[in-house]
Design a protein around this nucleic acid. Structure first.
Lengths: 143, 143
DNA sequence: AATTTAAAGGATAAATTTATCTTTTATTTT
DNA sequence: AAAATAAAAGATAAATTTATCCTTTAAATT
């Protein structure tokens, strides 16, 4: 479904979103541990998220990464889009270059329903929503 | 969503399912062309499908591949399962090793709904269904 | 200003997926 | 039986994804 890079990105962002305002900064090590992801690879992914303004980064002693208020409100959709692109939301499930209402693949309509379902869910679920569910003990970040 | 190998497998199977009974045999070249997939790679994938009894293969002059009556009734689900495994149907979207009702990830329930939707569709859509939609001109195998 | 800390950036390597090519095996036709 | 055909099998290579490591840059503390 999602690439590993994408899962690491989501879990890192959600972890940062679980941190209370005022103590919202965390270093790479802490993030990678919390997200259960390899440190150096996570560093690369975080840089992408920083470039996209979904994260803030601070160098030097007591440096690290922070999620902005805006970042907390970011829908899951956006993270996937930034890391994996939006082929999962837009591309043809069977790989047809041109797959549309006019020239549909043999599961076009059936997949459209699922894709719409997925897209809707991913667009309406924010990192904050996910973080809240973790902070209230309803769900978990790590296995 | 699906690997290229899986898309090639599906498109190859659907192509074979579009062939009328009595002329249901096609050679690798013909299949790869119809499925828009690289020949040698397709050969490998077809061998997997043969091993799983989803296809018959015949060597020698006028040899090739055939889909059995049973194969025509095979749901899309099975092809994906054979080629990509069933992590897309069963695995945690965020990569948690243990992700269950008791120990859910932060999107467990929301994803369950989508997964159920996907699984249901894939289990009830057969290769024959897809082939029929192509044979009646409603949908297309190639772009 | 010098030192320390931590991210940024870039090079490299390992693993996996995708793809091709060559030889072998089985089958049909001559 | 010999020749021709087409899939099976296995070796190899290219591309992509995942992962690590090392040097540079920026910022805080001394």
């Amino acid at each position: 479904m999602f690439s590993k890079a994408c899962k690491y990105a989501i879990n890192s962002m959600v972890f940062l979103a679980t941190l209370p305002e005022g103590q919202e900064r965390a270093g790479l090590k802490e993030i990678a541990f919390a997200a259960n992801s390899p440190e150096a690879f996570t560093a690369k992914i975080l840089r992408t998220l920083v470039r996209e303004n979904l994260l803030l980064s601070i160098k030097g002693p007591n440096g690290g990464f922070e999620i902005s208020d805006e970042g907390r409100k970011t829908p899951l959709y956006r993270i996937v889009q930034v890391i994996d692109g939006d082929s999962i939301f837009k591309g043809c499930a069977l790989g047809l270059q041109e797959c549309s209402e006019k020239h549909p693949c043999s599961v076009h309509h059936k997949f459209k329903a699922i894709r719409d379902h997925l897209t809707g869910m991913m667009m309406t679920t924010t990192l904050q929503d996910m973080a809240l569910s973790i902070n209230t003990g309803v769900s978990f970040l790590k296995t």
